[in-house]
Write a protein that binds this DNA or RNA. Structure first.
Lengths: 232, 232
DNA sequence: TGTACATCAGTGAACGCGCGTTCACTGATGTAC
DNA sequence: TGTACATCAGTGAACGCGCGTTCACTGATGTAC
């Protein structure tokens, strides 16, 4: 990578940092090229050397955010013994919350209100968006294959329409997982997501106060309920 | 109410309807007085006869939305036999989702990203925001008093910091409920909220497809898990 | 019932500000011979 | 190693548009005597 290319990347990062700062102050919808330029001491047209348009910049920020949360989840998983399935899942779910609270704006960017007028290029964003979910489902599948994950419900008990869709998905290239791993994966995601978003917007604090203890207790309980154990 | 006052109210409603239309098209942050004025065939300064400022208008929209979701939940509850506690709770939770999907913008307004620069007058918004939660906790308390709600966990099992906070709350005027009704109330809220928000932003459809069946199944399961039964 | 007056609804111009994007350009940095 | 040229970074002016809010005002509606 040439010196020039490195400088180019560094400026690109500086622009993105300014964009995040701006979103933090004014909300995700308030990304403004002129504001960014002002912040980093440039004129607005100069930004077009780095991004083709405001849309392009937003897409970059979205992909960065999806990859960032996926990365911390992967790292949290990697720090646990491979066969400690419950420990891995809990670590991954804790990482989801921690990242959300540390990066509330990026969290809002990827999981909150859409930015008016912006249409995400789905061929780029969908794969990035799926990384966290696929990680969880992957751990569940591994645990199931190892006989360490025995959910207290079977696919026959699910609503027929849901069960049929899950069965259809397993065969497809998109979701090569076992159906109950998929189902518990999505249930788990809705649960942690609810806790994190409500906490983020200050809706749970007044009732539980120690939101981290609450969260940890609930995700641990979830693993127990699902009979997810670890090889010791 | 005088004729003039009635006309005044009607115009106020027209302004709010235009504001909702605008949020639908451009996001909650994009409420613009000039845009509203254009839409209803007025000039922007005329709106100041009805709202003291843009902030005031947003507050009105917020309160309307909180009251609207609370009202449909109360109505759903009222349609069930008083002692069918599980039925009442399921109906209320279904109403939460139905309202969210029917009014995605109002849902984003009250539970989504905050509007940049807008600071809610908490003495007005907090009581309105608490109506749905209080309704659920109320039903749980009733059921508990009737011996029809026996949660499979006790307050002793909760994290000490959470348990202590719950105990402290019961005595207070703010939350005169039994601690486990409060706790299960907040757990229930995080669960349904996670399912609804992820559905709203198209994150669950690809896995479960029939999102309503999924939701109904999960809320029913929640009631069963909590040993919430009905007097027959 | 008619008149005088107060209230209210709404206008149009203005203030001072913001935005994304295009364009012709200057000057610096890098590259090939 | 030095020179000629191409590439790239960044500027400043401009286009056409948006915004919330204030102000002095006109005309219609309602009210009190």
């Amino acid at each position: 990578m040439s010196r020039r290319a490195r400088l180019h990347e560094a400026t690109k990062d500086e622009i993105k940092a300014a964009a995040r700062k701006q979103m933090k102050a004014e909300g995700t919808a308030a990304i403004s090229l002129r504001g960014i330029a002002r912040d980093i001491g440039m004129t607005a047209p100069a930004l077009y050397r780095y991004f083709a348009s405001r849309e392009d910049l937003i897409t970059d920020l979205l992909l960065d955010a999806f990859n960032a949360i996926a990365d911390v989840m992967v790292a949290a998983d990697a720090a646990q013994p491979r066969t400690d399935y419950a420990g891995r899942l809990i670590a991954v779910m804790m990482a989801y919350r921690a990242w959300g609270l540390e990066h509330p704006i990026d969290f809002q960017l990827i999981y909150g209100n859409p930015i008016p007028g912006y249409i995400a290029p789905s061929e780029l964003t969908i794969p990035a968006a799926r990384r966290p979910f696929d990680l969880v489902v992957g751990i569940l599948s591994e645990a199931m294959a190892a006989g360490r994950f025995k959910p207290p419900l079977t696919i026959e008990e699910l609503p027929p329409s849901v069960a049929a869709h899950l069965r259809a998905l397993i065969g497809s290239d998109d979701y090569p997982e076992l159906p109950m791993a998929l189902y518990i994966g999505i249930v788990g995601w809705t649960r942690i997501h609810g806790m994190v978003t409500l906490e983020l917007f200050e809706n749970t604090q007044s009732v539980v106060s120690d939101t981290e203890a609450f969260y940890r207790y609930e995700v641990t309980k979830l693993c127990k309920e699902m009979n997810l154990t670890s090889k010791t």
